[in-house]
Simulated assay, not measured.
Amino acid sequence: MLKTERVGEIKEYIEEHETVSLDELVAKFNVSKNTIRRDVQELVDSGDFNKIYGGVCVNRSTVVPFNDRKVRSHTEKQEIAKLAAEYVKDGDIIFIDSGTTTPKMLEYIKHLNLTIVTNNIDLVINALPYEGIDVFSTGGMLERKTKSLTSMDNKNLINGYNINKAFLASTGVSINNGVTNSLPIESELKTCVVKRSEEVFLLVDHSKFDESSLTTYCGLDEIDYLVTDRLPHHKYVEYAKNRQIKLLTPQTNTTKN
């Protein structure tokens, strides 16, 4: 990895976690402590970060306000949803997952004639005005945290559907642990969807890479399209290339195969 690329990723990592130790950065970026010290010093010299004992933290006086970060995050998720929606065609039978990004796809596909299978409550409600969209809910118990419906019978339900394209969310993605989720009962549904779908799209923003949650619902190699807001670490780019996974970002998606 080029130094400028590494320093940029270190900057993002510190901004996300606000306070990190040098040892944590060494383990995360797999470089020597001396290299990390030099990179951190470069960031400290920029004025956006402060040194602390054994580590580095965000300079509070330069932190982007919460509402601004929220707007920026919303824009990133909107871009991911719009990009994924470009792969939806008239007549498709699709699954749209619960999450903060996947339901945003509706805005870009509402003019199509589709069948949508979903566990997301907001999507069911928001699709009401669009008569060309048939919506099938997975049903079950309300999970307020994710605004989703979960049930022990989801497996049997999903096995009855022939899904062309699935658009899935994740709370963490890594090469070793695959695509993960924090709720086991939701993970079972996602696993079934992956198996029943002709093509699987994973929609995640850059903060989800190298993160893992409680349960793995599929391997990263079971994904056909990885849709994100910016190119991830080069190891994911190589992984996708070697396994014929199409890596899509707003910057790189100039043509659709």
Rank of each mutant, 00 (worst) to 15 (best):
D23Y: 05
E24H: 12
E24A: 12
L25C: 10
L25Y: 06
V26Q: 06
V26C: 00
V26I: 13
V26G: 01
V26M: 05
A27T: 15
A27N: 14
A27V: 09
A27S: 13
A27G: 14
A27M: 15
A27W: 11
K28Y: 07
K28C: 08
N30Y: 11
N30W: 00
N30V: 14
S32Y: 07
S32T: 15
S32W: 02
K33E: 12
N34K: 09
N34W: 06
T35E: 04
T35L: 09
T35D: 03
T35K: 04
I36E: 11
I36V: 14
I36P: 01
I36M: 13
R37V: 06
R38A: 06
R38G: 02
D39P: 10
D39F: 04
D39H: 05
D39G: 04
D39T: 08
D39C: 02
D39R: 00
V40N: 00
V40P: 02
Q41Y: 09
Q41E: 15
E42C: 01
E42M: 07
E42L: 11
E42S: 07
E42D: 13
L43F: 11
L43N: 02
L43H: 01
L43G: 00
V44P: 02
V44G: 00
V44L: 00
V44A: 06
V44R: 00
V44Q: 00
D45A: 05
D45E: 15
D45I: 01
S46P: 05
S46T: 11
S46G: 03
G47H: 07
G47I: 07
G47L: 09
G47Q: 10
G47E: 05
D48H: 10
D48K: 12
D48G: 09
D48Q: 07
F49T: 00
N50F: 11
K51D: 04
K51W: 15
K51Q: 14
K51N: 12
I52F: 01
I52K: 05
I52Q: 09
Y53T: 09
Y53W: 14
G54R: 02
G55C: 05
V56M: 13
V56R: 05
V56A: 13
V56G: 01
V56N: 03
V56C: 10
C57Y: 08
V58M: 14
V58F: 14
V58C: 11
V58W: 01
V58D: 03
N59F: 03
N59K: 04
N59R: 05
N59G: 01
R60M: 06
R60L: 14
S61L: 08
S61D: 02
T62C: 06
T62H: 04
T62A: 11
V63N: 03
V63W: 00
V63L: 10
P65A: 01
P65M: 03
P65N: 04
P65Y: 12
F66P: 07
F66E: 14
F66Q: 11
F66G: 04
